[in-house]
Design a protein around this nucleic acid. Structure first.
Lengths: 106, 106
DNA sequence: ATGTCATACTTCGCTTTGCGAAGTATGTAT
DNA sequence: ATACATACTTCGCAAAGCGAAGTATGACAT
């Protein structure tokens, strides 16, 4: 799939991955994999950005000797998802513009 | 609308704007405006890139004392639009992942 | 004549961003 | 002992959008 196209979905996708409860990076990648693959460096970059934008909060916890950082979505994060949903009709109209068939050409 | 989200659509949108016949930059911007706004510098950057990728061809012509560069879509350009169309089902599945409702949470 | 606006394309440079590569460190299975 | 899964981090490149400013012409109003 076109890399460019999915880039706009990465942020919101990461938020969606913690929408129903907190999770951590490694798990999120596995959860998103069937829909959208992203590398670790990409995800952790995005998570840091989303944290800066206060769309999620982080807490560190130890799990089996290993560090885990659990991410939880905030109100702003949920708003971001809602905003995406609202943008969708615009995306659909662009989609129609791109794929529309011209009548009576040629 | 979210800037990030539309970025993946810019290229294909520009191609779509010349799908039904050749056009020139300034006109293309006006044609796309109802669906997607992009600045001139963005469009001309994209047009140059698409030309490099052989998805369109250019010819210069004078029109009322002013220069105009007319762009025409190529086979590869049409293939690109088709590819976009094929990617769409993947986009829809990501959309569903993002917006799905969790049952029995709260 | 002067100013302003629409047309039309160009160039510069900033900033954001995805992401490959490599690294650190632990637990488990072979 | 080796290899693989887990889990997060850091570095730095390259692509890309786009604001800003520039060049140049024609039309139209004051």
């Amino acid at each position: 799939m076109d890399g460019q196209l999915k880039r706009g979905l990465l942020d919101v996708c990461a938020l969606a991955a913690i929408k129903s409860g907190e999770s951590y990076g490694y798990q999120m990648i596995k959860d998103m994999k069937p829909y959208l693959e992203m590398s670790e460096s990409t995800l952790y970059t995005i998570l840091k950005r989303l944290e800066g934008a206060e769309m999620l909060t982080v807490r560190s916890a130890e799990h089996g000797g290993r560090l885990r950082k659990y991410y939880r979505i905030t109100r702003k994060g949920l708003d971001r998802i809602e905003e995406f949903r609202e943008d969708w009709s615009m995306i659909l109209s662009i989609y129609r513009f791109i794929t529309r068939e011209e009548e009576a050409h040629e």
